[in-house]
């Protein structure tokens, strides 16, 4: 993928809202009194993908695979070590978020917003709904309180809450309602890209379905683009158009949701899919039980990071690092044997 970095002049193709090229984020490991850097955690290690305007990209993987770090880098909540994050602004100009100076970045943040996982931790208990949802408006220059109140009322209605609740505090709301408040706050500035980091995983099943529906409705009505970070694969299948599967800081497979679920090309994707418990007792299937544990991103194995757990690993996998390659239309896989393997996926019976 090294050749992609030189093409900095390459403007993103039309329809692409976000293009991430060779994104890297290393966290230094510091030791001792002088805090010398003795190594680094490769949280995100050369990740590239793009998201089409109005579509949803699902970023899946197990804990510690770097999906949250990737999403935070895209918003510049943390600074990436290297790589490009090309974002197409409303006027058609493409900017690199990764190297943007502070002031223009602040303006750009109107266009990119985040929904958090924990509906309890992400709302300040001392702020009323008006303050919470109205804060982004205030920060971005809407000084008049009555204007803000109108906009907050509109937003609350949009997410299915009653505007009369505006003066209440978060403790009065259930988990699902709090998540709606978080969504209203993210929508306050009419963003074009919404990064949703596990937005439904803290919710109960019966409430989760409501929030998924809400996210889909507002996507349609506001033409939003989602980067949907999740570990629940059935939720991802429901909501995402494209999926990127991450393992130890790298994307191992990227492509159309349907195709990946029905016909995975990377052994890790196949194992991940087969691990999902299916809510139907008549399909107690033979699953692929992966041996061992997820590799340590501070000390990853040589060659393919997945090789110690992969049943198809050969000597090549132990020494040579695979690259993310296009093996089919819109289908990227990082595996030496992607073309030869016949892996099982999940398809309707």
């Amino acid at each position: 993928m090294a050749e992609a970095t030189v093409e900095t002049t390459n403007t993103t193709e039309s329809g692409t809202l976000l293009e991430v090229n060779n994104l890297v984020k290393h966290f230094p490991i510091q030791k001792g009194f002088l805090k010398r850097t003795v190594g680094s955690v490769r949280a995100v290690d050369d990740v590239s993908f793009s998201v089409t305007q109005g579509k949803t990209l699902g970023l899946v993987g197990e804990s510690g695979c770097g999906k949250t770090t990737t999403s935070r880098c895209i918003l510049r909540a943390i600074d990436p070590t290297s790589g490009q994050i090309l974002f197409r602004k409303e006027d058609g100009e493409t900017v690199d978020v990764a190297t943007m100076p502070y002031q223009p970045l602040r303006d750009l943040r109107r266009d990119m917003q985040m929904i958090f996982q924990d509906p309890y931790g992400s709302l300040n208990p001392r702020m009323s709904l008006f303050d919470i949802v109205g804060e982004p408006l205030l920060v971005h220059g809407m000084k008049s309180s009555s204007e803000r109140a109108d906009r907050v009322a509109e937003l609350l209605r949009l997410v299915g809450l009653r505007p009369e609740y505006m003066r209440r505090f978060p403790h009065a709301f259930s988990g699902g309602e709090r998540q709606r408040i978080g969504i209203a706050r993210a929508l306050a500035l009419n963003p074009r890209l919404v990064v949703a980091d596990e937005p439904v995983s803290a919710l109960d099943v019966s409430v989760q379905a409501q929030v998924i529906n809400l996210l889909q409705e507002i996507q349609e009505s506001l033409n939003l683009t989602y980067l949907f970070v999740a570990h629940d694969l059935s939720v991802v299948r429901h909501i995402a158009d494209e999926v990127a599967v991450m393992y130890v800081g790298k994307i191992v497979e990227l492509g159309d949701t349907e195709k990946i679920f029905a016909n995975p090309k990377h052994p890790y994707t196949s194992a991940l899919l087969s691990s999902v418990p299916i809510p139907d007792p008549s399909v107690r299937q033979d699953r692929i039980i992966l041996q061992g544990e997820v590799a340590n991103p501070a000390n990853p194995p040589s060659g393919c990071y997945f090789h110690p757990r992969c049943e198809y690993a050969t000597d090549q996998c132990k020494t040579e690092e695979p690259q993310l390659e296009l093996i089919d239309e819109g289908r990227w896989v990082s595996c030496h044997h992607a073309k030869d393997l016949d892996l099982t996926g999940l398809s309707a019976k």
Binding site: S174, G175, G176, E177, D204, V205, S206, V207, Q208, A209, Q210, I212, N213, Q216, L233, S234, V235, R237, H238, I239, T257, E258, F261, L273, V276, I278, P279, L346, S347, A348, K349
Partner: peptide, 27 residues
Amino acid sequence: QGLLRSIPSIYEKGIEKLPSIKGSIPH
């Protein structure tokens, strides 16, 4: 019935709205 219906299927893409149980668990 509502609980089972509200889980998204891993087998197929949901084209329609996910059936959900209205409201939330009471205090």
